[in-house]
Structure formats: structure tokens, C-alpha cells
Amino acid sequence: MFKKILFATSATAASDHAARVAFNIARSYQSALNIFHVLGVPSRGYSQVVVDVKTKERVDVDEDYLAWVNEDIKTYYAKYLDERLHYTIDVAVGLPAREILRQAKKLTPDLIVIGGSTGDEDETVYKKSSAGTTLQKVAKASHCPVLVVNRPAASFWGGLSNIVFGTDFSKTSEKAFDFAMKVAKALDCEMHVFHALDISPLHGGRMLSQDEIEQQIREATRKIRALYGARLKELSHYSMDVWEGIPYVEIVKYARDKHADLLIMAHHSRKLPSQDIRMGGNVEQVIVRAGCPVISINK
């Protein structure tokens, strides 16, 4: 479990929560950690000049500069880095999402850890010309699970013991369940399987009666049992629940209620949301709001 971790970082405060989690997992599970930073976006012309996302300066990217950035990252994370941690640092130039995926293709990690979205970086001219955030693009195309830490509150981590798996009964959810089982077994965790019944009139087009709601809850519970019940018995502690409400709110509430230290969900939006809808899907909403790290699984 988690033999190789790719930690994609801006090496700024925006990635600090993710950093804490990434270093924590790497240390706890003796993982090889690759700290990966994309320093800037090159032009489509052939200028050697790149605007450094950290310093906001125009720089000539050459060997010296790359070495300097590498050293800078080492200094930034100095408190985490010691001899017991197996880490490497790589620095690249390009569009962050693409370069993270390229690095993942090269390293084939078991897990990608990525910080949440940052406010100011989105205002650069580079972002304006490409829809979707780095996180959305990586989550969509990644072959391995992607762990996201968006809020500081989500970054506390004392090892894994309590997993919430949110399902929408989709095909991708099955894969996410397989992964959740794998983690739970390997690390001896409790697992809580959860489905949120969407009762917002926006979703269904009308208000549901209480009888209908309860009927649907019973159906969903039966479905959870049928789909996951047998395999859950392989674990010593588990539970299954269905709550009604706005799905992402219910999942976040449920995770809090269960003192979850990890949320696992499927990410199966086919298309990237358009530029205007920044964090469109349910998973994205959970990521933004959750009080623990969220792993999204696509393939």
C-alpha cells in the first residue's frame, strides 16, 4: 500500500495542508515520496522566459535555475525532510495538470497527493485560456487514486483507522470500493459505507413525500447490502448507512460523525466542467468542504 507517492505541490502555503498529509503517509508507511513542482508555464513561441508561479518573476529556466528551485523546495520542507524519509524532488516547466500527469505516467505512483485550489494563482493569464482546474484535470485522467486536501482542518493525520466510502452505485464506485477495501484491509481500518439520497427539488424536479423518502432509503440500504455486504464481512469493523439531503453536505456531515480520517469516492464526471462552474460535481464539493483528506478514484 502506498509504496510510491507523487506529491504535486506549489511549495507555497496553499499546499501546506496537503504537504502535512503527504509527508505523514510517506513516513507512516515507508513510501518513496516524489515531491514534484511545476514552476511556470512556457509560451507557445520559443522564448526561454517563463513566469515563475512562486516568485511571479520572469525567469530564464536553465540548469542553474532548476537547481535553485530544487534547493528552495528542500528549504521550504526542511522540517519534514530527514534521513528516514525516502524522497526525491523534481521540478518541471509546463501546464501543471499536464506535467503532473506526465510525471505520474513516468513514476506510476500508487497515490497522487495534491493540494486544494488557490485563489491568486487562478488569476494568471495562463489559467484564463484553459478550462477547469489542475485538480479536476488530474482527477479525471489519473490512473491512480488522487488524494486531495483542501482545508487546513482536513490535514490532521495520525495514520489511517477510519474510512468513509461514499457510493452512488456507479461502475466507477465499484472500483473505488475495491480500493477502499484494499486500504482498509492493508491498514486494518474501520469502514463506513455511505449513500446520500438526493432529495433537493432541484435534482428531482419536485418535493418528495416523507413516505417516498423512506421508501427510497430502504431501497438504497438494500442495494448497499447486496453490493458490498458480503465483502465487508472480511473486515472486523464496518457499517452501512443511507441519509437523505443534499449529497455533498450529507457526506461531509457523515464523515464528521464517524470521525473519518479518510473519505473515498469515485470521480466519474465525463467532461470537465466549464470555466464558469469552478467546482461543479459532488466530489469537488466534498473536497472543498471535507474535514479529512478525500481520495477520488477514476479508473
Binding site: 509560451s43 507557445r44 513561441g45 513566469v51 493569464v125 495562463y126 484564463k128 485560456s129
Partner: peptide, 13 residues
């Protein structure tokens, strides 16, 4: 055109 695309990006910057 790559060149035009780049110039227009730069002019926005």
C-alpha cells in the same frame, strides 16, 4: 496560429 495565440496571450499579460 501559434504565434498569434502567443502574442495575444502576452498582450493580455
Amino acid at each position: 496560429c501559434h504565434n498569434c495565440w502567443d502574442a495575444i496571450r502576452d498582450l493580455e499579460e
